[in-house]
């Protein structure tokens, strides 16, 4: 098998890897006999809280009272199927949350009900956040730089997780040709906010990403670094592949380079013969015009 260009090979490989990962995730999910709480922590808590306020998705406190239970089961099983079927609540929800679709949970209807049970119970109790809800702090400039390196893969994650750019792309000069398998992340921070990005990094809700980072979680510092980097990418739209105002520098550099080169040539070939030996004679000759 031959590929027209190396890029084709890469995408094909990513396709294989993704299929394999989805399959693995599905098996893993079926084998799981965890309780509703465990499933909530694993799958939902990245985007949702119970009484902890909005994150990527809505706060789920008292959701059982607000929505019909069967509707909730359908939505959790496959939100997009519901949106496509034209369900007005589903369409409105998607629009409210920046058109960010909720991933399908690889759970049976019973398991989903178990999760809803847990939410119902928890709503009565105290507020719950994401399991990795650690003290938030802003990334330093150094960490942002490190985040870029982690994203690009020039520095490896400590626990061996794959580099972000294997599947994601961001529109920034430093990242050339990031992956196209998953979301383009330029505006992710703006859309999801710090806690949202952090939650996804801590416990990826997306099956492929979860599988990719299964057993290879990001460390606390790495999450801050990558989050900071994504934030910086979102904040500096002017740096996105924009022509920098280097016209005069380039022109100056070019002219300088040319004059240095010409100088070297003039030195090397300073004794070159440039004129006919009889130039003076020819100059005196009468011309017809």
């Amino acid at each position: 098998m031959t590929f027209a260009r190396p890029g084709a090979l890469r995408y094909a490989l990513m396709g294989f890897v993704a299929t394999w990962m989805v399959a693995q995730a599905a098996t893993a999910g079926a084998a799981e006999t965890s309780t509703g709480e465990a499933n909530f922590t694993r799958l939902c808590s990245a985007c949702h809280t119970i009484g902890g306020g909005r994150r990527v998705g809505p706060d789920l406190k008292g959701i059982g009272d607000r929505r019909d239970r069967e509707w909730l089961v359908k939505w959790i099983a496959s939100s997009q199927t519901l949106v496509r079927s034209g369900d007005p609540i589903a369409v409105a929800l998607l629009a409210e949350y920046n058109n960010m679709p909720m991933p399908d949970a690889a759970l049976s209807a019973d398991e989903i009900r178990g999760v809803l049970e847990y939410i119902g119970g928890a709503s009565a109790g105290s507020a719950q956040g994401a399991p990795a809800a650690a003290p938030e702090r802003a990334a330093t400039a150094e960490e942002i730089l490190r985040g870029e390196e982690l994203f690009r893969g020039s520095v490896h994650f400590t626990n061996g997780g794959p580099a972000c750019s294997a599947c994601h792309h961001v529109t920034q000069d430093a990242v050339v040709g990031g992956g196209v398998l998953a979301m383009e992340l330029t505006t992710s921070f703006t859309r999801l906010g710090g806690p949202g990005v952090r939650a996804i990094l801590a416990a990826p809700p997306f099956p492929v990403m979860a599988q990719a980072f299964n057993g290879k979680p990001l460390t606390e510092d790495e999450m801050i670094a990558v989050g900071g980097y994504l934030q910086s990418v979102g904040q500096r739209p002017e740096s996105y592949n924009q022509a920098r105002e280097d016209t005069f520098k380039l022109l100056g550099g070019g002219l300088g380079g040319v004059s240095v080169l010409l100088g070297v040539y003039a030195l090397v070939w300073r004794r070159r013969k440039t004129e006919p030996v009889n130039r003076e004679v020819f100059a005196r000759q009468v011309r017809s015009q």
């Binding site: 040539y265 090397v268 070939w269 004794r271 070159r272 013969k273 004129e275 006919p276 030996v277 009889n278 130039r279 020819f282």
Partner: peptide, 14 residues
């Protein structure tokens, strides 16, 4: 050194 620019060639007028 002079392979791309042979400096002592006669010109056609020579």
């Amino acid at each position: 050194l002079n392979i791309f620019h042979n400096p002592s060639l006669p010109t056609v007028e020579d």
